[in-house]
Amino acid sequence: MQFKEKGLTRRQFIKKSAGAMGLLSLVSSPLLPILGRAKASETDSGEDHQQEKKHAWSMVIDLKRCDGCTGLDIPPQCTQACISGHFAPKGHKWIEIYDVELPGGGKYFLPMPCYQCENAPCVNVCPVGATYHDKDGVVLIDHHRCIGCRMCMAACPYQRRFFNWGKPEVPPEASLAEYSPLYPVPAVRGTVIKCMFCAHYLQDGRLPYCVTACPRKALYIGDLNQDIAGNGTEIVKLSKFLGENDAFRNKEDLGTQPRVFYLPGHGQDAGRKADDDRPLLPNTWAWGGEGYNKKVGVWPWEKEVK
């Protein structure tokens, strides 16, 4: 009688418990990642995180020497070399030169690669661990994992990240390249892409495309751990070089700790005056053509705009 009133037999109890467990596991399944691997990619790329950090790649850009290639009447060669080296999709300038106005009139040129920040906002916000620091301190992107949410682009205070909005049109030779996060060629549609300090070259002891291509030798690639930097023709002791030349970092106050240092100047070593108003010449892409500009028309019934 008592049991009847409660309306619960053992069989029902077991059934219901199983149901409740099932429901509970279903509901809590989004919580699983907490238990799983919180820091995904590092372990995944096959590199041992405990391994001694050999390098701390960094870059020094001597603004005294950078005239944006305006003195040579050519487009910025760092950007151009980067485009052709990485078969960068049309419009992507992973290293880009901005002109910044000087308080006393005139302007200087500021080449901006990805800063590979030590406290990188982009790495913090990635929901799937697709962007991560590799053992040498370079911020890489795993394009097979990236879901294209663009949270990292919102987080980057320097706007150094690009998105492959459509299927990137790249020359046929790009498809010969073997993809790796160190050398993301060919670019993958629907994912974020950026400068990665040519980490595949650094591995082999070679210099990045932009450093080699700079006609003014304004770019130095270096290693903070070994305290050394070079631009292809000269080698400097990094700490001394930064200290003696009043090095600064962009938006230091944000606490992102960029690994790119600037030596203040306006291209005077390349013979440029601050009030020289010759503009930067536009970079060119040998590929992409109209393909990357493929987009839908203003109205559904219109043909695609080319």
Partner: peptide
């Protein structure tokens, strides 16, 4: 690739 969030989700991300 939305399932990547379940498989590789990082709890540090606001998403």
């Amino acid at each position: 690739r939305v399932w990547h969030i379940i498989v590789w989700g990082r709890f540090q991300s606001p998403l």
